[in-house]
């Protein structure tokens, strides 16, 4: 049987937060929330884990830093040492002070781009990707909860709808679930 989904629409971020708290307390698993802007504090309520994007940036930064240092050591010390104004070029340590700016820039370059690309890939937001927000107004001023029936095996669709209707909803709708991406 194809999965079905219940969409509950709200018109305020604080209302949807209160409603989510109540529904979760009732034992309903909220699959996702669509909103036009980040709702602070909704993540722990619906069980979204904290992102690890910060670690990604750190790792990419390390890669960038090592690449810059290895690269400059190879170019300037190993492959073709140049005597420029009598400045030391015999070892990486001696020449390090003038390598600092590029090492820093390269670290930032790698950390920023590496994290941004990972972010886009993980979100599946890439040029040409289809959007999968259920209603166009969720990017304007509507807040929508997505409750998949397969995530809530202990409730029937009617039970969930009844519980959702007790909160301050604008509308509630049950649909065939179509996975877009």
């Amino acid at each position: 049987m194809a999965d079905r989904v219940i969409y509950a629409m709200y018109d305020d971020d604080d209302v949807i937060k209160t409603a989510a708290k109540k529904l979760v307390a009732d034992g309903i698993h909220i699959t996702d929330v669509f909103s036009p802007f980040p709702i602070h504090g909704i993540d722990p309520i619906i069980g979204v884990k904290h992102t690890r994007m910060g670690n990604v940036a750190f790792i990419f930064g390390l890669i960038g830093m090592s690449l810059a240092l290895f690269g400059m050591r190879y170019f300037m010390i190993v492959d073709w040492p140049m005597n420029i104004g009598g400045k030391p070029n015999f070892s990486l340590m001696e020449n390090l002070p003038s390598f600092i700016p590029i090492t820093f820039e390269f670290t930032v370059l790698f950390a920023a781009h590496g994290m941004a690309i990972t972010y886009l890939l993980r979100n599946k937001t890439l040029p040409g990707m289809p959007a999968d927000n259920p209603y166009p107004r969720t990017t304007d001023d509507r807040f929508v909860m997505e409750i998949l029936l397969s995530d809530n095996p202990s409730f029937t669709a009617e039970e969930i709808q009844a519980k959702v209707k007790q909160t301050d909803i604008v509308q509630v709708e049950e649909k065939e679930f179509k996975k877009i991406k």
Binding site: M53, L126, T139
Partner: peptide, 24 residues
Amino acid sequence: SFGWSGRAKHWNRFEIVTLVLAGL
């Protein structure tokens, strides 16, 4: 818009990514 749909997880990442980018 790269197919952005405003999921809670995406906003969660969005906030950290912008914060880290600001830090960088």
